[in-house]
Design a protein around this nucleic acid. Structure first.
Lengths: 230, 230
DNA sequence: CTTGCACCTCACGTAACGTGAGGTCCTAAC
DNA sequence: GTTAGGACCTCACGTTACGTGAGGTGCAAG
């Protein structure tokens, strides 16, 4: 059988057959003119190749399975299954994240979306899975309104603190103490008072200088509040 | 910031930064000597790139999202989600198939495994999903023993029929009629008498000549039995 | 002035082919 | 005998997101 006939019969491309010949996976005999000739044996082998390919094995694995009896089929399948399951898990995680974002910001612009994705990636980096779940529960408890109102409140607080720093107010001053209490209350409200989560939060602000700056928080403010809270 | 510093800070390779520069995804300024210099703006952009990459977008999509405001983020995310879900589905199917095979042939050799995969691929090609489920239920009803005994029975039946064909026996001969009834009973036992499944089965034998031959069935035998059954 | 490190630019390799480009073989019709 | 049209052949580059050298330059310290 010539290459075109085989291609038509099996529905795969001539180029693919050429490729399998090139890599030595399926090497037909040749006519005097150099045309490929596929016999019964090659057709059988091609069917096996296609079945294994359909099952997601690489051409290299397929070659090994078909040519070397010492290839441990069970191990290859086990490895393959593990790979598949890992990929499934990863993709499910991704889906969950993207769906959450799409659901959470139904009217966001491109920038907002990208920032949301960025923040989410960052959170994944600094919090454990359990902490993320706790935070999510906490967010639901607080409700949408509260979540929406918080950033402004936080920003106002930052500005007040910054004002006292510029004015040189002593951290022990009652006005600063009040602000520090507010700071602590805000943090507790969102972390649920979990010290491990607060630790992760601190790490995040420490590691992501740029993010911290955007939020109006820097080392100076952190120190000042820490002294006030002592 | 020079390229090595940035690489260390973000944990990605210098080559990757070179690559992003090559494809115009992240183009730093250059010093007089031609060394790359990454400023605040580039660092911000890199973070965005990494977040989006982590989310599974291609570099081309990322470039589009970051550079062109007319890029429909929602559409991109939707498309991406669809891709991911399709991949998840495909991989879950594969896992199910491979696990079924591994469980069904706990002591198989390489050839048996490959053949099992081949047969399964073939079945997927000729039967609908519902039919495959029906067949699976049927197999469980019949039990392992019966499934194991059937091939021999089938093979014996084939040999008997072949004998009559060679002897030139009339299909209407009572002995042939008896064999035909047996044939029908065997088919009904495994198809559950579903005519659509039987049709698929016939198509499979017609399309997969090689498989049919291995089973000892060819067009001649098919015709002979058909005449006997009339 | 030299050593050594960080940087630079090619440029090939990866998996599994798709897609031409340009040349040869075969078969049938004239 | 020749000629047209398929079918076949062999390069060889393109795809994705970089890894991995090879070979050359810039810069600060001893």
């Amino acid at each position: 059988m010539k290459i075109g006939d085989l291609a038509k019969r099996t529905g795969i491309s001539i180029r693919t057959l050429h490729h399998y010949d090139e890599i030595g996976l399926l090497t037909p005999t040749r006519t005097a003119a150099g045309h490929r000739e596929y016999g019964r044996e090659e057709i059988v082998r091609l069917q096996q190749i296609l079945s294994l390919r359909q099952s997601g094995f690489s051409l290299e694995e397929i070659g090994g399975l078909l040519d070397r009896r010492d290839f441990d089929v069970r191990a290859v399948i086990g490895l393959h299954l593990a790979r598949l399951q890992e990929q499934i898990r990863a993709r499910q995680d991704l889906c969950a994240r993207l769906e959450a974002i799409a659901a959470h910001y139904p009217t966001a612009t491109a920038e907002e979306f990208i920032q949301a994705i960025e923040v989410m990636t960052m959170f994944d980096k600094y919090y454990t899975k359990e902490q993320l779940e706790t935070l999510e529960k906490r967010r639901q408890m607080l409700g949408e309104e509260r979540m929406a109102a918080a950033p402004a409140e936080w920003s106002a607080l930052m500005q007040d603190v910054r004002g006292h720093i510029r004015a040189g107010t002593d951290p022990k001053d009652p006005r600063v103490q009040e602000l520090a209490r507010k700071w602590r209350a805000l943090i507790d409200e969102f972390t649920g008072g979990d010290p491990a989560i607060e630790e992760s939060l601190r790490n995040m602000y420490k590691g992501e200088t740029r993010f911290a700056e955007e939020q109006g928080v820097d080392a100076e403010i952190g120190d000042y509040i820490r002294r006030a809270l002592e």
